[in-house]
Write a protein that binds this DNA or RNA. Structure first.
Length: 550
RNA sequence: UGGGGAGUCGCCAAGUUGGUUAAGGCACCGGAUUUUGAUUCCGGCAUUCGUAGGUUCGAGUCCUACCUCCCCAGCCA
């Protein structure tokens, strides 16, 4: 299927890059994906990853995977490993992962340079005083009494801070900019704090750690990042980003051209919550079964659910990038997954809500093998043998005692085709045994010449009772029932249902990473922690059901 | 309240220097094909660009005022 690709549309970031390349400011581009290893990656990160790596690929540049590990209290190796694994799963080759902590020495030297040139000072106010003196939206801040400390004294104090001679919280290094700036981020932001915490990589080497605000621009510059893409909430930070890098370049520590920070809107999805606080709550309070629960909007959960990297890439392209706050309908993500899965998932038959069907004129004890294509649109995928017999499981909703208008499946007197097998006529339903009664029509076996003379609208799947593989199937629904879910009060109590299904025998050997389509149902994968159960990734579109639901 | 952003079809999103009928995708609605009420295919889907004025032969694009929404006062990122 090589249908025309949608024209890759322009966006404001590409335009900036195009201009920078055209003007000769950069010969090639470098982007970066800079997670803090303090949690698990989620759908929002997938957008950022696709954006950064996608741009690098498009322009023949490169994208660094860099851990922004400047706050040892919140970061752990476990998260580093999980992030690495998920980026790889998404299909991006990050080469060697980089760490902000590898630049701690450089950052320290840069801080001394700033102090030496009068651009930074050690502030010995308490945190409360600092906050008080910062002012507010309507009032300018007040200068710290330490703001005019002598350079040498600043240097001495800062070194003592580094050497562990001062207690946590007693001093802080601040940039010396403008306490009256209308942009609060420019009111002498904090650069370094004293924090006696063991870092997951540098151990106890340091007891002072740089703040994000200070560290991030330096990380970008050191790596030669050309375009530093981040989310909208950092817009107010950009003046400081430029201020810092400018000072360090003036001081000879950094080379121009300097990286440019560009902000874009983060993605929001209906029925999904992405804030770390709320995700933690879901896990901690047991509303889901862990961070990789298939209902979680984490990449680990997505993988287990059967979502695919290709689906995420499609999603990223489809939602685009801009500065307007986007709230994407969750169905867009689902549709992206369907689009990819439709191409790669072999078809199988599975009855999820079984009711017995008996073909009364089919010989007792007789069995036949039916030839069933693995993908009707892809004959080269071959066929498989599926056993057929007198007693079958069919879907309960494929029979109606009194059919609603437009219903063309089984009801007394109607004929349907048992997919890839025979055409049968419904003769009734036996209440005592909960069995749908049918008789097979002569000469109607699928694949034979006679089969085509029967024109039936209904076409239902089945599984032989005798040969059925019984397995559990998890049916997942959205975790939140409100489209703009805020919290637990919007929880969907039925987000997970487990059913005992009857599967065609070939499903006994399902691979855990291989998607299959249960025909007329949706896409499923064997669960990664329990291969005998299947997870529903996403259902098929069902215009009949949606049109007939209340 | 000061500062920084954003407002184009139900949801995204092109539209850059003002110039014929406002891209495209998703959704939706028709219709065709179909042994998945799936897929695929074909057709339809904004006299209008947050609002109100103004400039102009001509404005989503320029000017003015206003409205709405988001972000910022961590020694978090």
């Amino acid at each position: 299927m090589n249908k025309p690709q949608p024209p890759s549309t322009s966006n404001f970031i590409k335009q900036i890059i195009d201009a920078d390349l055209a003007s000769g400011k950069h010969k090639s581009i470098v982007t970066r994906f800079p997670p803090e290893p303090n949690g698990y990656l989620h759908f929002g990160h997938a957008k950022s990853i696709a954006l950064n790596y996608g741009l690098a690929q498009l322009y023949g540049g490169k994208c660094n995977l860099r851990f922004d590990d400047t706050n040892p209290e919140k970061e752990e190796t476990e998260y580093v490993e999980s992030i690495l694994e998920m980026v790889k799963w998404l299909g991006y080759d990050y080469g060697t992962a980089l760490y902000a902590s590898d630049y701690f020495d450089f950052m320290y030297r840069a801080a001394e340079l700033l102090i030496s040139e009068g651009h930074a000072y050690v502030d010995s106010q308490s945190a409360e005083q600092v906050q008080l003196n910062r002012g507010s939206f309507s009032e300018p801040g007040k200068n710290s009494p330490d703001r005019d400390r002598k350079i040498d004294d600043n240097l001495t104090l800062f070194r003592e801070m580094r050497d562990g001679q001062h207690a946590d919280g007693t001093h802080v290094l601040r940039a010396r900019i403008d306490m009256a700036s209308p942009n609060i981020n420019m009111r002498d932001p904090t650069l370094y704090r004293i924090k006696r915490a063991t870092h997951h990589r540098t151990g106890d080497k340091w007891c002072i750690y740089p703040m994000y605000t200070y560290a991030h621009p330096i990380e970008d510059a050191v790596e030669g990042v050309t375009h530093s893409l981040c989310t909208l909430e950092f817009e107010d930070q950009r003046p400081f980003y430029d201020w810092l890098l400018g000072k360090l370049a003036d001081g000879g520590l950094l080379k121009r051209p300097l990286p440019q920070q560009i902000e874009f809107a983060r993605v929001n999805l209906t029925y999904v919550v992405l804030s770390k606080r709320k995700l933690i709550q879901l896990v901690a309070e047991g509303h889901v079964d862990g961070w990789d629960d298939p209902r979680m909007p984490t990449l680990a959960g997505a993988r287990r659910r059967g979502y695919t990297p290709e689906g995420f890439k499609l999603f990223a392209e489809r939602i685009g990038v801009s500065k307007a706050n986007q709230v994407i309908e969750f169905s867009v993500l689902e549709d992206c997954m369907r689009e990819h899965l439709n191409e790669v998932a072999p078809r199988r038959m599975a009855v999820l809500d079984p009711v017995k069907l008996v073909i009364e004129n089919y010989p007792q004890g007789q069995e036949e093998m039916m030839e069933v294509p693995n993908h009707p649109q892809k004959p080269d995928w071959g066929k498989r043998q599926v056993p057929f017999a007198r007693e079958l499981w069919i879907e309960r909703e494929d029979y109606q005692e009194v059919p609603v208008k437009g219903y063309f499946r089984l009801f007394p007197g109607n004929t349907v085709r048992l997919r890839y097998a025979y055409v049968v006529k419904c003769i009734g339903y036996d209440k005592a045994t909960d069995t749908v009664r049918c008789e097979v029509l002569a000469d109607s076996r699928s694949g034979t010449d006679g089969a085509n003379k029967y024109k039936v609208k209904g076409n239902i799947h089945w599984v032989s009772v005798k040969h059925a593989h019984e397995a559990h199937v998890h049916l997942y629904d959205r975790v939140f029932k409100e489209s703009l879910a805020q919290g637990l009060e919007h929880l969907n109590p039925d987000s997970k249902r487990t059913i005992a299904a009857r599967l065609e025998p070939s499903l006994r050997e399902a691979r855990q990473d291989a998607a299959v389509q249960f025909e007329r149902h949706g896409y499923f994968v064997a669960d990664s922690s329990d291969a005998s159960t299947f997870n529903r990734t996403v259902s098929l579109r069902d215009t009949w059901a949606t049109a007939n639901s209340p």
